[in-house]
Nucleic acid binder design. Sequence first.
DNA 1: CAACGAGAGTTAAGCGCTTCACTTTCAAAT
DNA 2: ATTTGAAAGTGAAGCGCTTAACTCTCGTTG
Lengths: 335, 335
Amino acid sequence: MKVTIYDVAKKAGVSIATVSKVINNKGNISEKTRKKVLDVKKKLDFHPNVMASALTGKKTKTIGLLIPDLANPFFSDLARNIEDSANELGYNLIMCSTDYLAEKENKYLSLLKQKNVDGFILASGFEDLRKIQELMEENIPVSIIARDSPMIPINTVVIDDFMGGYQATSYLISLGHENIGIIARNIWSNRERLRGYKQALEDNGIKAPGHIEYAEEISIGWGKKITQNYLNSDNPPTAVFTCNDLLGIGAIHAAREYGISVPEQLSVIGFDDTMIATIIAPSLTTMAQPVQIMGKEIMELMVGMIERNEIIKQIILMPELVVRESTAKVIKKYF
Amino acid sequence: MKVTIYDVAKKAGVSIATVSKVINNKGNISEKTRKKVLDVKKKLDFHPNVMASALTGKKTKTIGLLIPDLANPFFSDLARNIEDSANELGYNLIMCSTDYLAEKENKYLSLLKQKNVDGFILASGFEDLRKIQELMEENIPVSIIARDSPMIPINTVVIDDFMGGYQATSYLISLGHENIGIIARNIWSNRERLRGYKQALEDNGIKAPGHIEYAEEISIGWGKKITQNYLNSDNPPTAVFTCNDLLGIGAIHAAREYGISVPEQLSVIGFDDTMIATIIAPSLTTMAQPVQIMGKEIMELMVGMIERNEIIKQIILMPELVVRESTAKVIKKYF
DNA sequence: CAACGAGAGTTAAGCGCTTCACTTTCAAAT
DNA sequence: ATTTGAAAGTGAAGCGCTTAACTCTCGTTG
């Protein structure tokens, strides 16, 4: 049978209260008893039941991580880094893929609440803030990562998406491109990157396109599809900024299919800097998100909130341009 | 404050026992009371505390998933599929990356045991079976996925790695290759694939290499490194079988660097059929693992075991050859 | 019409732990 | 010798829930 605090108490000849105190380093216990208890604990291989202690108000050391899609390399990479950091701090993660569906988000939220997680890390969409506010009202720690920081006081770790879009576009402009396409999905981060893109164009006296076609999913297929549309248009761009690597891969695939060489005839710049950026040929120039640091920071915010009721912080990190092979100077055509 | 079963009972004018019975569909409750209780439950938005009911012997509906590395696309893909299936069956997953380190495996195991998970799915190495046997003795459901089925009665979902290696190699042989290299890591699944490779060679009257150099990690870098060694050798192979896609990508990268074209001068066949196989150019021929089915099957085994004490099963699925662009008929040189 | 038993509910113990309030012990101070 | 009080430890309530055992109603039945 499972060994409980009673077994330890009995064998050590003390009360369960004493055992509890030894284990939690509380109250006054003589060195002798402490040693005795610890000995017995080890001998019986006793591990306190987390459920039971959670019932009395202690923490479960478990955090819910809501992420759009674990199979997306950016998010699995991010999740892995959060996990590592969580592990170091003594926490475990329940991971849930939401596919950007509010329905799933809400379902997981209430499910995990029942399971007494100590807090939530949301990497998912949550276009609707009410649920988040509800959590905060219930005093459940929530942090947000890799998405917008909404206009409510909440812990966040984000990158400056606007700046990322701005830098990516500026880089293309610096290579001489003037007709630059964009591929984005209609989610917050992408909209910000789009905003940066437009700003960069404007700052350089280039007219931004009025209408842009959104990808309906973040996938290679959609990147390809929209690139094809660009390529079929009257005035195809010499460069595209794709709001993440997956879409960028799609762009490169589309170009290949059309016999258009990257980067000579079409420059492509991605976003995220996931592993796949280095797999493709030509390797993808991209804006890197510092996922390792992000993972570390978010867990520190969470634990600070859970264990020490720390003040709310918003951490904004800068994405960084990683130049690879998919971008080049534009070749001017003189007529 | 949090709403408990007492609140519901009081408001519904019944005892907490009655509420409990209504919620769990047990015992005899009149239609009238049942409705009343359900009404109040909804009105108060009551959700039973999982910890508390777990304490009384019920399930936590949480399963521990130990996986080598969430950032590895094969495993993140697998994890996502397990998650989907778990979700459908009403379970959540605590995911842990072990990096094939026994130390981490054991740490997570004991940590999650304290958290009363209903069972474990192990996709990790666990070269040492003792820990698994310990779990089984403690009557904790354990299943194994995507690794060897050890010689103990335990639920498993695996693919036939030996067959996979055999088929991949046979395919290369059928293309006329006779000098075929292999790239593997020294873990069970890879050793099996290697065994299949040797068998296929032997069955076709080709001498298998005596010594093979193992990759120390499953990574593009190691795939590249070992391919370079092959390419630098006296008698470089015309094809390589890499025991997973990541290593295969490395092989293609190495070839590109050496100015050796794939598949004309070097055929490469991978294993897993992860997304990255379709990203690279030339796209990677590979042995596909049916991750979706695997995820579904493993969860059904788990739930069968947890909820219905079902008998142990071992499910062996067949990998499937997916031909893409990285393999071609060997070009015979006539002197 | 008394006896019976199924149906509908309730009581209370217990799951494994934490912690407040309390008791006991004993050395130092008066 | 008595008082004091910090140190060391214990008792027991309570966290939110399940469930075995029990009680109370009634409609049936012989």
